[in-house]
Design a protein around this nucleic acid. Sequence first.
DNA 1: GTGGTCTAGACCACT
DNA 2: GTGGTCTAGACCACG
Lengths: 120, 120, 120, 120
Amino acid sequence: MIWQIDENKQIHPQLVDEITKRIIQGAYSPGEKIPSVRELALEAKVNPNTMQKALLELEEKKIIETRRTTGKFVTANEADIDELKKTISTQIARKFAGEVKSLGLNSETVLEMIRSEFDD
Amino acid sequence: MIWQIDENKQIHPQLVDEITKRIIQGAYSPGEKIPSVRELALEAKVNPNTMQKALLELEEKKIIETRRTTGKFVTANEADIDELKKTISTQIARKFAGEVKSLGLNSETVLEMIRSEFDD
Amino acid sequence: MIWQIDENKQIHPQLVDEITKRIIQGAYSPGEKIPSVRELALEAKVNPNTMQKALLELEEKKIIETRRTTGKFVTANEADIDELKKTISTQIARKFAGEVKSLGLNSETVLEMIRSEFDD
Amino acid sequence: MIWQIDENKQIHPQLVDEITKRIIQGAYSPGEKIPSVRELALEAKVNPNTMQKALLELEEKKIIETRRTTGKFVTANEADIDELKKTISTQIARKFAGEVKSLGLNSETVLEMIRSEFDD
DNA sequence: GTGGTCTAGACCACT
DNA sequence: GTGGTCTAGACCACG
């Protein structure tokens, strides 16, 4: 699985986002074990410390949980994951809408642009 | 004019974006003088050096130009500015489309979300 | 290693030239790490920020590259470095030729002057 | 007559150099009147104050002289001018030789490069 | 200890 | 008062 990390921004927020995305997509499913910190760090070409920090943040958000000596697991509750998906989606949409509005684009133009992006 | 700067991200890219936005909106028009470095820095509550760096980047992108001891001016060529507007718009749209696609949302859902954002 | 900086001219272009020269000479070889920003700044008796700016310019010219938290390295590609040497040499020669031509000197005189300089 | 001024360097030294060059070439001959400060400033697209400062420096170097209410004149003494020409030429040659030596070029290569520049 | 960023404050050339 | 440059010193993320 590919990790796209921009070295010029802070790294662990990017890791958090990427893992969250994977959970939402179902790449890591509710109740499932996720790869070990070392494995993930290797994949992402990132220092294990940094990956550890990212996973800690996800745990604080109750998105994953640690079972000692066994590994880290995605939260079992599917409803929570669904809720998460909605929250993130609207966050992204809101941010996007804000940006295009501030450029002075009208909704027609914007919707058209989005449609053409989806036709690719 | 209001500056919304997030102190936790790098500042000068945010300044670049903000000024670019103003030029696209027409708040600063082609051929016109923009406020002095010091003035802008004061407005944005930012160190003049930081603003200077942002303006330098805009100059490298040929969006503004400097007349020594006189001030900085928006590029006179209106076609360039229009081009800029298109480029930026599609950039934003493409990024957004990429994000929502990677979350596994379909175009219907996405368009609906955008519409509801525009109804606010 | 000695740094000859003329305080009355802009400093960072001089730093750029000096470092470029060292790379061409092979004092810093392709693929090798160069001293840290702070170290170079200390050597050159210059503020680290100023050195940083100079190195940034070299990076934009693809002469050096940065590995975050590790250091800065000369571009590995030796052919590029060789190309660089040629480009710089002809640049200097062209500028010189332009100057002496505009003084109305003929090629004989010029060549003779150069020869005598090399006899020192 | 064309003036090539680089706005990013200090201006008046450039003016000094340019005028000196013209005198050496004979564009302004020994004993002759040179154009007025205003005229020169206009030609060079430079503030009259700046041109004035440049001419003052030339006067201090005894290259030109002011006759009140009449204008400024090139020093009458042709030997002086000739001396000047030699001094400047060797200065330029010495600087050039220094640069190419520090790049590690040998005299053969250098002489060849110069020749080819003169063949243009 | 590495690079990167920001602030504060100073000085310069030019108009 | 304009842009441009430099210094000094601080803090951050990362390894």
